[in-house]
């Protein structure tokens, strides 16, 4: 029996979900929410310090990139300096 059209494992298909940081639970652990309000706990160790309001790319429970900081500048802008 295999996967069919009804299921799409975003982890297995390598997709990430943009999520906003709602609250910091502990060093490296933040409560994040998707645009539609679905919340889950995310490991943020790979991004150093994250601030509530930041938009992160999350995959399999881990934040892989900072998409947008609360003031609207992305990590990519900063890296370009």
């Amino acid at each position: 029996m295999s996967c069919s059209g009804e299921r799409h494992c975003i982890t297995c298909s390598d997709e990430g979900v943009p999520m906003r940081v709602v609250d910091i639970h502990a060093p490296g652990l933040a409560l994040c929410a998707t645009e539609e309000g679905v919340k889950s706990e995310v490991m943020t160790d790979l991004l150093g310090l994250v601030e509530p309001g930041s938009m992160l790319l999350v995959h399999a429970g881990t934040a892989l990139q900072l998409i947008e900081s609360p003031r609207g500048r992305s990590a990519l802008d900063r890296a370009a300096r």
Binding site: T11, D14, G16, G28, L46, H59, T62, L64
Partner: peptide, 10 residues
């Protein structure tokens, strides 16, 4: 390598 970091951190 997308998912491996999550396993590593865990």
């Amino acid at each position: 390598e997308t998912t491996a970091p999550s396993t590593a951190l865990t």
